[in-house]
Design a protein around this nucleic acid. Structure first.
Length: 429
RNA sequence: GCCCUGGUAGUAUAGCCCGGUCUAAUAUGCUCGGCUGUCACCCGAGUGAGCGCGGGUUCAAAUCCCGCCCAGGGCGCCA
């Protein structure tokens, strides 16, 4: 089909072109008909006067919302049409009918609940809100890749099916693997380390799975994460990369997604660097200062993270120097206080969007830490092995894509920021 | 797994507290009719739910009670 996008057509005034898209709505005044036609690029009003050769065909077609139609004709300036331009067709082709009534209002005017929207996700993608969210997500991803590629990081592809569940922590999804049992990866952690000890600087965007029965607005059983791993780096080094990367991504969204931010009613503030580095101890103090009864050694709840955000009044900040009990075995202990590890979380708009650590690159220390955590170093032979043949110190982090999208778009439920969310109940679509 | 709130036309809400006036209302959609400049077009008519599912109380249940399922939020859980 010789077809141009609606946005392109608007730039090519007077030329005879074919546009195609969905009927957003029709305004039928009897002899005069207006059809609002929408494609992925934009919307235009198609105006059909009684003397138009297609006037009669159009009457017979009786177009309805979301019918797919192609028009051949030209874009002309119009002083009457509010958009300033309109499309005058000379022929029309009905490409496909939409069944009526449509399950949700694609124009976004009659609200639908998230659950209903997710049942009809393909239609929901046509609403201004959803389109804005996923375009912003796309920009975040593009900016992430560009930022790291420009700085010499190599994009790697770790496996999603893994053999071992012996890392501890979250429950994994099991699956049959020929005559063995395998698992869906809960983290590409080991693989990115294996890459970093040879490629030095790597990044990736991968899905991960957690079989936890959580039921919250910020958790999914399948999420995508954006990770880096870097050799010859400690936690502070990669925190700097993280904050710069965040600012880079936010600036890209602010620059390239002005219209989408407006649809969402979001004014995106780009934090100034360096970000505040709050220690875990300071965060505990702050919460206690306002009457929160948090114990040292406890993790922060979502409510507490939001509380810290409002107390600090900063868009984004780090919490660092965590108790070793709250972080995985491979987090490097602090020399000055072995109760603490070189680990950090990044809180953006009250939401934990990223966490990272400096990793233990010393096999003996790793074995000791595993034992201290009640794990058997024998089960981690392949993991430890990659540090036996010349492993530089290294550190890394991971950003949850859906969480970041939530914070940037202002969505209150993570499901809205995942195209096809997987949670405890939802497996379809 | 726990606590709170909710589930009513395709969609979103009202009604529920205080049972009967609900033959279930409103918006939007949809159907039909009218309209030559609309732009959330307008005007008129119509269509569409028996109130999440199951049970109970009552002369009478959308409304009260019990169980279950589902949704939203808070927690828990979550290297």
């Amino acid at each position: 089909m010789e077809r141009v996008s609606i946005e392109e057509a608007k730039r090519r005034l007077g030329e005879t072109l074919t546009i195609a898209g969905w009927v957003s709505r029709t305004r039928d005044l009897g002899k005069l008909k207006f059809i609002l036609l929408r494609d992925a690029s934009g919307e235009i009003q198609v105006t059909v006067k009684p003397d138009n050769p297609i006037a009669e065909t159009l009457e017979e077609l009786h177009l309805g919302r979301e019918d797919v139609v192609a028009f051949k004709g030209r874009v002309v300036e119009s002083r009457i049409a509010h958009a300033g331009v309109e499309f005058i067709p000379e022929s029309v082709e009905l490409i496909n009918r939409a069944k009526q009534p449509i399950p949700i209002d694609v124009s976004g005017r009659v609200k639908a609940e998230l659950d209903t929207r997710l049942d009809y996700r393909f239609l929901d993608f046509r609403t201004p809100r959803s389109r804005a969210i996923f375009r912003i997500q796309h920009t975040l991803l593009q900016a992430f890749r560009r930022f790291l590629s420009d700085r010499g990081y190599l994009e790697i592809q770790p496996p999603c099916i893994i053999a071992s569940a012996s890392e501890g922590g979250a429950e994994l999804f099991r699956l049959p693997y020929f005559d063995r049992t395998a698992y869906l990866a809960q983290s590409p952690q080991l693989y990115k380390q294996m890459c970093a000890v040879s490629f030095e600087k790597v990044f990736m965007v991968v899905p991960v799975w957690r079989a936890e029965k959580f039921d919250t607005p910020t958790h999914l059983n399948e999420v995508r994460q954006m990770d880096i791993e870097q050799a010859y780096a400690d936690d502070e080094d990669v925190m700097r990369v993280l904050e710069e990367c965040l600012v880079y991504m936010l600036e890209a969204v602010r620059r390239e997604r002005r219209e989408e931010l407006e649809i969402l009613g979001r004014e995106l503030e780009v934090p100034r660097l360096p970000l505040r580095r709050l220690t875990y101890d300071e965060a505990i103090e702050m919460l206690r200062g306002v009457g929160d009864e948090i114990e040292w050694g406890e993790d922060f709840t979502r409510t507490q993270e939001r509380k810290l955000w409002s107390l600090l009044g900063e868009e984004a900040f780090f919490i660092k120097d965590w108790p070793e009990t709250l972080k995985p075995f491979y987090a490097m202990p602090r020399e000055d206080d072995p109760r603490l590890v070189h680990a950090f979380d990044l809180i953006y708009r009250g939401l934990e969007i990223s966490s990272g650590t400096q990793r233990i690159h010393l096999p003996d220390l790793l074995r000791r830490r595993l034992r201290e955590k009640g794990l058997n170093p024998e089960n981690f032979k392949h993991y430890i092995e990659c540090f036996e043949y010349g492993a530089p110190p290294h550190a890394g982090w991971s950003i949850g894509l859906e969480r970041l999208t939530m914070a940037v778009t202002g969505a209150s439920n993570i499901r809205e920021c995942c195209m096809f969310p997987r949670d405890r109940e939802r497996l379809i679509p």
